[in-house]
Amino acid sequence: MTWRAAGAGLALTLLAAPASARAPRAAGFAELPGWASEDHAAAFAAFRETCGAARDPAMGGPCRRARTAGSLTEAAARAFFEDNFSPDPAAGSGVLTAYFAPEYPARPRQDGEFSAAVRPPPRAGGPQPDRARIESSPAPDALAWMRPEELFFLQVQGSGVLVFPDGRRMKALYAGTNGRPYLAIGGPMRARGLLPGEVSAQSIRAWLAAHRGPQADAVMRLNPRYGYFRLAADDGRPPSGSARVPLPAGRAVAVDPAFHAMGELLWIDADKPVLPGAKPAYRRLVVALDTGAAIEGPVRADLYLGEGEAAGDEAGRVRHELRLYRLAPR
């Protein structure tokens, strides 16, 4: 697990929503919701670049044909998928969330604002303490220092880019956790009346920033899981997921590996957003290229939306009812 192992989609700061029993049915591609309006050429480009990560031997033929074909027109790309795959609907419905590659300011030394240590993993041996004990311990080996609420969100996302005052950019890469369970803080915050309005990633982060110090620390410590990092030079490439290939923005998802193989081609049909300001629907071809600690179940996906603030704003509002189709090689 290289990218999403530390956390879940930003919208999972809400309480989990139960899946409904409604099962999709499709006799073919024509019946897939949104298939006719898909950007098949863009989907084909993403498949061609990532299909080498597929674990299913049956994907070998379509992958070779895609790489031999090179770039395709919209019509040819649609024909490629329809000729090489058939849609297999998963029973029931679940939840679509989203994630992104965040970019945060950092400092090489601690100060009053940048007071949270980006820590490397400890030496192996013995049980790991919870978040509260880790944060209250000295950090002589700190890799960098961040605002506490931004470090918390970096740990939820799993990795990101740190920008230092001298312009230096470093990737903060997932390096493990303390092994404690992940607890989404949105539900407890709502129950305590801390967020009387919209409960979203943006509102949670704004509250934590406004109450930086003991109040915000107490809320963040409701989540006992703590993430460790390693730093590497920012090479400008997209982050890699569990499949160890760069994640194409808008075309990669994190899934539960108990139900989906890496490199699997999927059609997502997601609508009925929960959060205000969200897009009404996400219907597109995606590739399973990542995993996440809270991404569990056969109809559960976390859509990677790219890097930067705009991707983060969108990701924080994605919590849609999901129907999922596996595109099985013919």
Rank of each mutant, 00 (worst) to 15 (best):
G158S: 13
G241R: 14
R225M: 07
L154A: 09
L289E: 01
S242L: 06
E150V: 04
A315E: 00
V318S: 03
G277R: 13
A288E: 01
M146L: 15
H40N: 10
A258H: 13
T68S: 09
R147E: 07
E149R: 15
P127L: 05
A8S: 12
F29M: 09
M170C: 08
G306T: 09
R65H: 05
Y304A: 05
A294Q: 13
D271C: 02
A218L: 06
E296Y: 04
G312K: 03
I185M: 05
G179R: 15
V245L: 06
G94M: 06
A142G: 12
V318P: 10
L14E: 09
S86K: 15
L265T: 15
R251C: 02
R55F: 00
D269W: 00
L154C: 07
D269S: 13
P273R: 07
I268D: 01
A6N: 08
F80G: 13
F229H: 00
R221V: 07
A21S: 14
D290F: 07
A27G: 15
D256Y: 09
C51S: 07
P89L: 03
A79C: 06
E113L: 12
R168Q: 14
G250R: 11
P148L: 11
G186D: 07
T68I: 02
A201G: 15
M170T: 05
V163L: 13
D256K: 13
L195E: 01
R131S: 14
Y282D: 02
R237Y: 05
R190H: 06
E264L: 06
R147M: 07
R244E: 06
D39Q: 13
R64F: 02
M220S: 08
V274A: 14
Q155V: 05
A43L: 02
A45W: 00
R284V: 04
A101H: 08
A45S: 11
R192K: 13
G167P: 06
L72W: 01
A261M: 06
V245I: 12
R225K: 14
G250V: 09
A27N: 14
R109Y: 00
D111S: 09
L194R: 14
A90K: 03
S20D: 11
F29A: 11
D271R: 07
D217Q: 14
A8R: 13
A142D: 04
P102Q: 05
G176A: 11
T68Y: 01
A172N: 08
A258G: 15
R230P: 09
Q128L: 09
T97E: 01
R225F: 03
V118C: 04
T177N: 03
D88W: 03
P224Q: 10
A91D: 04
P122Q: 00
A66K: 02
A30S: 15
A172L: 11
R317Q: 13
V245C: 05
F259Q: 12
R169P: 04
A288W: 03
A293Y: 05
S240T: 14
D269L: 02
Q157I: 14
A124L: 11
P188A: 09
A30P: 09
Y228K: 03
